[in-house]
Nucleic acid binder design. Structure first.
Lengths: 198, 198, 198, 198
DNA sequence: ACGTAAGCGAGACGGTACGTCATGTCTTATA
DNA sequence: TATAAGACATGACGTACCGTCTCGCTTACGT
């Protein structure tokens, strides 16, 4: 019985790890997700294939780590709170739109999302490490708005977040229309005021 | 110069075409998207690989056609209009939720969306043949509501559709939470009333 | 039970037949034996594949017919007989060498021989229709020499023919050395005089 | 520019190599040359196709190596020299005839020769590694006969070898007649004594 | 300081699927 | 009914990667 033995993380080569993540990101931007291969990443990183297989269980989780490494660089601790909820949300959403329109991010994120869509385990990981914290920040801001009386008290914050941030993500993923800052603002306005006449 | 010559569609075998689409759908449900292979589809359909390569340029477009064939079966001509906008939207959205929770549909649609996410040409095709018509029906219903005074006149219908139907699609794709009929109703209510106090 | 029915030869298209044989010869000279395909021949001859399959049981027999058609053009009725056996044989053998050195013939004949080597039925056909008659002419000439006292009476003509004509064919096939007219003459001289001192 | 990189022979698996050569020989004997496929050899040898493609440039050269491996087993160092040239040659030639009549060898050798006939590079390899050494042994024996006064001094040994050994090879390849020991003896006698009366 | 054990690069291995090509059969229409 | 055209099922081609394995080679640790 040859149980898979876990490698010793303390002896791990940081150089190799970084080279692999960098190569993965670069390649996914270059050749696209479909043609991304472990073989290619290993070669580009100047690394043996085994070094990849030793530390990552799947291409998805490698891509995920690569994405985390990239995204983690310039992470905000909280959403802005100037007191003007609409303005704050628009600011954040416009920034998101800009990010999604950057081809470098675009490819990598599409790859990420594909893996997530097909791998529930990865989805859980994503929910916990990336989406979760971000969601918490968003809900924080909305909660503050609720306290300030700018948001109805009976609104489910989970749903509220989906309503404000979902449409932009959707339009990006499925290209159902041009992804512009103006669209982002419209979404914020509509989400806040609702569709019914008042 | 060996230009690829287009085959003559009039000589195409309808039997083979149908067997291929059916096999594709069945296999994607059985083995999942990642392990779906042209080789496997050909075998399951009792068809030569070349017959697939002759008529479809990519696995994505084959999957797309298979999906179209399936979706096309029970297509609705219009959204219900009982006069009660919220109720009508909830009805439709609950049906959507049920569909997305059906494992058979789930797998196929995830596969579809993956292809769309990575292939702009396919995305355009999707927008034109599947999403477009559906969107038009939705906008039609909303437009009727606008005339009936149940919807603000200055609301952009495009945005409105995104707001009502986007969150469900999103939650399904990224599994950011349980996809239930109750969630669907909450979304409709929140979208219609807006987040702000009134 | 669908027994293969023989087609009616009286309705056969002579045009198609000729085009096929010509195309086969031309292609075998152009692309070589290994890359020769029925598909290619049909296309080059402007003929449907079925027309080839209808009339020839194998690529070998088609090649054989093509070869026969070519060889049959300038066929000699008898070997020269000037009374000088050595000179006559040298003349014929030098001509053979020239033929074998012609790239057009070379390719076609190699193809022929390959088919013969691997297909006993074809070998029998070859023996009867091409090699047989040629052998007979050669033996005829040797028999005449025997009567003229230029050949030992107890020599087996079959062996004699092999001895005179075999080495050239061999050297050509296996490229064991340069195939020149001088070599041909040496063979004739050695075969006639024998290897032992006299 | 992606130049094909040569693999490292020191890491080559001897097990795989042997399995491949054995499978090639067995299969060529079983299904014949025409139906011999790399795919089949790989499968029979329990080997990935790539392992074959990695080490052999063509089916011909694989067959050649397989043949070499088989032939190399019981190789003689020199032709017998009892002092009686005719007897010695007859002995060797009868052995050759027996070998060629063994179905196991027959198939493999026909395959070999077909490849040689169509591939000059292979022919050169054959000349250098198989035919060359054998020829040298034959010429050695004839040279000894020359010194012993049993062979004319002005005979070209190259031609002499062709004359003695060629006809048997020829009759085998082209099936122009039954390949018997008696025929072999006749060839030796005729070659030594010549065709002319004395 | 020195063996020993791990991670490392490299890359060969048995495989699967790729997308292309040729096979020989079958169907359609043209003459 | 023979033909040209060409779609079909089949299956081999040679390539690209898969994930595993085995090589020497460098580290770094425990004696």
């Amino acid at each position: 019985m040859s149980t898979k033995v876990a490698p010793d993380p303390s002896r791990r080569s940081e150089t190799a790890r970084r080279a692999i993540l960098a190569a993965a990101l670069e390649l996914v931007g270059e050749v696209g997700y479909a043609k991304l291969s472990i073989e290619g990443i290993a070669q580009a990183a100047g690394v043996g294939k085994q070094t990849i297989y030793r530390w990552w269980p799947s291409k998805g989780s490698l891509l995920f780590d690569a994405f985390l490494a990239m995204a983690g660089e310039g992470e905000a601790a909280a959403l802005p709170d100037t007191g003007d909820l609409a303005a704050d949300l628009k600011l954040v959403l416009r920034a998101t739109v800009d990010e999604l329109n950057d081809p470098r991010f675009d490819q990598a994120m599409r790859a990420m999302h594909t893996e997530i869509v097909h791998d529930p385990a990865l989805a859980a990981d994503y929910a916990q490490r990336l989406d979760g914290p971000m969601r918490e920040l968003k809900k924080e801001r909305l909660r503050a708005a609720q306290l300030a009386g700018q948001l109805a008290g009976d609104v489910d914050l989970e749903v509220a977040v989906d309503m404000v941030f979902g449409p932009v993500l959707n339009r990006w993923l499925h290209r159902t229309g041009p992804l512009t800052g103006d669209y982002a603002e419209q979404v914020v306005d509509t989400a806040l005021r609702g569709l019914m006449p008042r």
